[in-house]
């Protein structure tokens, strides 16, 4: 029985905590693993869609990680990618149906992004790299962590783009009218997708220069 005790670790052991916090920093899915860039470009012109997208991705990564982790010993390796895809796609369709039935306004806001979640490489990346080989609880933490890491970057990029591109935050005007009268103009380039890439690039640059672990040797 003593071996059983050794294997059991506290719910929030250092290792498990790292699963949550690493994706926010040195293992960030967008800035370090460079996954999920497509949707980061597409949905960050405004904060609100970025936020809802982040929330939906957290829900889907967490549930998909949990389901795959529970099933991991029965999934035949030869069709594992198909199984993963079926799980993700079904979850996304379910989320979409529920949103349409109960919060129609939000579902209208999301429209295209719900479908985009299926194509998000982060989700399948985590299933393949983590949930297939780990127990359910760490898999849930890993899902939440990666969803959060993705969401944080999305919201930061959305914040910068909405502020300078539209002069608003969450749809509310924050740059006073007086500025516009003095000749200030919204930067139209900010709302175009290339600017998202540049902002993500700047975030990567800052993160790498401040974090010695991420500096590659020449």
């Amino acid at each position: 029985m003593s071996t059983d005790k050794q294997e059991r670790e506290p719910l929030f052991s250092t290792k498990n905590r790292k699963l949550l916090t690493n994706p926010l920093n040195i293992d960030n899915p967008i800035t370090v693993q460079v996954l999920g860039i497509c949707s980061a470009l597409a949905v960050t012109a405004k904060i609100k869609p970025a936020f809802v997208m982040a929330l939906s991705v957290i829900v889907v990564t967490t549930l998909a990680n949990l389901i795959i982790s529970v099933l991991r010993n029965g999934i035949p390796p030869r069709i594992r990618i198909i199984v993963q895809l079926v799980v993700i796609a079904s979850l996304v369709i379910l989320v979409d149906q529920v949103l349409k039935a109960f919060v129609y306004d939000v579902s209208k806001q999301l429209s295209v992004f719900v479908g985009l979640i299926i194509t998000n490489c982060i989700i399948m990346g985590r299933l393949e790299a983590f949930a297939m080989g780990n127990k359910p609880w760490p898999s849930i933490l890993d899902g939440i962590g990666n969803g959060l890491g993705y969401g944080v970057i999305l919201i930061v990029v959305g914040f910068v783009r909405e502020l300078f591109g539209s002069g608003t935050i969450w749809g509310f005007q924050v740059i006073p009218e007086a500025f516009y009268e003095l000749g200030y103009k919204n930067n139209g380039f900010m709302i175009l997708p290339p600017m998202a890439l540049i902002i993500v690039g700047i975030i990567i640059w800052i993160q790498r220069s401040r974090n010695p672990e991420l500096i590659e040797e020449k």
Binding site: A42, V43, A45, S111
Partner: peptide, 8 residues
């Protein structure tokens, strides 16, 4: 619209 780009 169903799926036009936000902001554009």
């Amino acid at each position: 619209h169903k799926s036009e780009t936000p902001g554009l």
